[in-house]
Design a protein around this nucleic acid. Structure first.
Lengths: 266, 266
DNA sequence: TAGATTGTTAATCGATTAACAATC
DNA sequence: TAGATTGTTAATCGATTAACAATC
């Protein structure tokens, strides 16, 4: 790297060929969001401490994350907000436009199509699809609902690489298969099922029910800590009162289903 | 643990006081979902290999995860589906009912209120709130929209421990503060902002935009790998053609904003 | 220069996974 | 018993973080 006069642009700043750790990739969008807010408020320079506080992470972690992109800070000063926005965007691949298809124009699909954050970051809804003839042709915001028969054609014509599945669980795998067959390699799945895909296809899952269950676990742990661990007596009372299932093979095996919370999908 | 005849219920099976690893907690709901599907199809027993395949994880990881709950499998046989459903539910705190408030009855809030997965797993919508008088009083599925003025009262009366924020970004922090002040300690945030909360409050974030950006990163990396690393010439052409920002302090600093993808929130 | 802040080191922690003894 | 499968061990990998030299 040259000293003295700084180069206009030095690709060598970025560690060549080094891959970003997954944990870093998942935090970069958060940094980007905080940086965007700062840029809007006219902030020119930000220190790792400030940016880390805004993103809710440790400043050492933030510096480590950014160091994977290259050396874009200035010692004793901090980071230039605009420049860092650009570098983070570039690292994430957001300097290009990403056409996206959304499959499913139910409540969720409509919410997604109306979501402004979509367009603001290089994503563009190429199509919103549904199989219900009653809503095909209607408009959700700026987007017209197309029939899902057109899926393959639209993907090819618009060079869509990212698909969003917002269908009921039962339809998700079939939709996924069609997306992949048509050339989509990145899928965001809102349906409450585990999708099977071939090697090389990237699936991310957003699942309200799973998030709530994780929250419930922590809430339960906190309340257990507040009340202290249950005594032997409490455990016995609870296990009898609630009709806990026996271990497998025990006499009451078949009668336990009712005591188990229904875990059927909707 | 007793040998020979198995006890009806042995709390000692669960490693006492041992905390579940976070990574395990986040996978348990997935196992639960797969197990529920199997139970519905009448499957009685499942091996770690089968369950792992259904959940899309390594079977060693699955067994390790389950081992944190206790010894609920049978060597040479597998796991009893119903019994495992019960044990996983119990570990997650799903044997009790969790009343939830949803704040924001826009597109997303309505989608959430209509989401069937809510009720099927011990979660119950205690209230759906909005500040818009035009929709207060209307019904979304089975739930009536209440005015957000009632937030504190409803939380206390229904002993709500979990809050879901589905408001625009601008309102999210204020809503969060009110939820926490009223006693909510677990928050699921759909608004595209980083929430500031006191120690002891658990916030999880669901963010479409962030998920898409992570997908874009991988999509970009795959396409870069397909095309091979860019040559020196390509790098130079791209950097000039796209009008890359200079490093901070360079001559074109002020003119670079337009080249940077707009990252403003919607 | 003195003060501030980055980028990196190295220690530590937690998660993953193959392998296999235990045991049904 | 023989075959199957769990639960655990231990090696490995990746992520986190405090500390600090480099340097603006």
């Amino acid at each position: 790297m040259s000293r003295g006069s700084l180069p206009q642009f030095d690709p060598g700043d970025r560690p060549a060929g080094e891959r970003l750790p997954e944990a870093t990739v998942s935090r970069l969008p958060v940094y980007l969001r905080v940086l965007a807010g700062m840029a809007e408020r006219g902030v020119v320079t930000v220190s790792s401490d400030q940016l880390a506080a805004g993103a809710g992470v440790n400043s050492a972690k933030l510096r480590k994350d950014l160091s994977h992109l290259g050396s874009y800070g200035i010692r004793g000063v901090g980071y230039d907000v605009d420049y860092l926005i650009y570098q983070v965007s570039r690292a994430l691949g957001l300097t290009q436009d990403w056409p996206v298809v959304i499959v499913g124009a139910g409540n969720l699909g409509r919410a997604l199509a109306n979501y402004g954050g979509f367009v603001t970051r290089g994503f563009r809804i190429a199509a919103l699809l549904d199989s219900d003839p009653a809503i095909v042709g209607s408009r959700i915001g700026r987007v017209a609902v197309r029939h899902s028969d057109e899926l393959e054609d639209l993907i090819v014509r618009h060079k869509v690489a990212i698909g969003v599945i917002a269908t009921p669980g039962g339809a998700a795998q079939a939709v996924c298969d069609r997306l992949v067959a048509a050339g989509v390699t990145s899928i965001l799945n809102f349906a409450p099922v585990v999708l099977n895909v071939a090697e090389g296809v990237d699936v991310r899952k957003v699942d309200l029910s799973i998030e709530l269950q994780i929250l419930a676990f922590h809430a339960q742990r906190r309340s257990a800590e507040r009340n202290g661990p249950p005594s032997e007596d409490e455990l016995r009372t609870v296990s009898e009162g609630a009709g806990l299932p026996s271990v497998p093979g025990g006499a009451s095996r078949l009668s336990t289903a009712a005591a188990v919370p229904s875990a059927a999908e909707a």
